[in-house]
Computed example of a mutant assay.
Amino acid sequence: MSTQANQAAQAPRAVVFAYHNVGVRCLQVLLARGVEVALVVTHRDNPNENIWFGSVADVAAEHGIPVVTPEDPADPVLAERVRAAAPDFIFSFYYRHMIPVALLDIAPQGAFNMHGSLLPKYRGRVPVNWAVLHGETETGATLHEMALKPDAGAIIDQTSVPILPDDTAGEVFEKVTVAAEQTLWRGLPGLIAGNAVRHPNELAAGSYFGGRKPEDGRIDWSQPAQAVYNLIRAVAPPYPGAFTDVAQRRFVVTRARLSRTRVPPGLPCGLQVVDNALLGICGDGNAIVIHELMLDGKPVTPEQFSQLNH
């Protein structure tokens, strides 16, 4: 047998559960590292969701990899497909469902997940959005073993990225996607060789957060300006955006900045027009300068806002 054929025979096999941009990039890293991906499990795109990210299914199709989109990862039919693929590894890259432990156990060399935070901080759902909301100055991506609890297994490797003061969650997610790619690229050789070091995932030192609902984007103008600004950044497009209701109309703040000057005293909290500029007056007397305010999907000028509400 030639050296090339021998290497091909020894190529590790994997079943990959993946979605979103992190799924796209990490799938490509596996292929670049010579992993034979025998099956990709992903989601059907939801027509009610803003699909601003890449398609794992398209990447798999380009490489001739079979794709399945089960509604329930506990479906016995899926377990049979995974078992038939005879994977050495199972990987999960931004797949949105918990994968049953019985499924994970099919892979003799382990099951590993890429999470968009510096574990043990921000376990759970939408970790980038939560990190921005809480005013964090860094986050990152963590490759870890999968366990019964979400994001609870031993840490293989992680990469940090900065969160700048005006970064939106979308901008941070782009950095985290690159961090995920770097982390997997660095960690794969050790996993394949079977000598990857496991680091403890100290859950008691971290935090867990659930998913966010549309109502969570409602602005509470009585909060300090920094807290309001963090919310605006955390849900800015491509996410649905922070909103406020005025005169039975819903206005969405899509672009804003913290004001560098004190606002005139006595202005009530909420959206106000001051010197032909849209401001969000906050509970600590500071303001948010609104650079883009939307109503029914269309931008609203300060003059239009004044006319609508008088």
Rank of each mutant, 00 (worst) to 15 (best):
S2F: 02
T3V: 13
A9N: 09
A9V: 12
Q10D: 14
Q10K: 14
P12M: 09
A14W: 10
H20R: 14
H20I: 15
N21S: 15
V22F: 10
V24N: 13
V29W: 02
L30W: 05
L30M: 02
L31A: 08
L31F: 06
R33W: 02
V37E: 10
V41M: 11
N48G: 14
E49M: 08
N50E: 08
W52A: 14
F53R: 13
V56E: 13
A61L: 03
P70T: 06
A74I: 08
D75G: 06
P76N: 06
V77I: 11
V82M: 03
A86K: 15
S92L: 04
R96D: 08
R96H: 15
H97N: 15
I99A: 04
A102R: 06
I106S: 05
A107R: 03
Q109C: 02
A111P: 00
N113D: 02
H115E: 01
G116T: 09
P120A: 04
P120N: 07
R123A: 09
R125F: 00
V128C: 06
W130E: 04
A131C: 01
V132G: 04
E138G: 01
E138P: 04
L143E: 03
H144E: 06
M146I: 02
K149L: 15
D157T: 15
P162Q: 03
L164Q: 10
D166M: 05
D166S: 09
D167P: 02
V176W: 08
A179P: 08
A179E: 03
A179Y: 00
E181N: 01
A196Y: 02
H199E: 08
E202R: 15
A204L: 13
A204P: 08
A205E: 15
S207A: 13
F209D: 13
F209I: 00
R212H: 12
P214R: 08
D216I: 01
G217L: 01
W221G: 05
Y229E: 00
N230E: 10
L231I: 01
R233S: 04
A236W: 05
A236Y: 10
P237W: 04
G241V: 11
V246S: 14
R249N: 14
R249Y: 07
T254K: 00
R262W: 12
R262T: 08
V263H: 11
P264S: 09
P264W: 07
L267S: 01
V274S: 09
D275L: 03
N276V: 02
L278V: 11
L279Y: 15
I281K: 11
G283M: 05
D284C: 02
I290P: 10
H291E: 15
H291P: 01
K298A: 11
E303P: 00
Q307H: 14
Q307Y: 07
L308E: 11
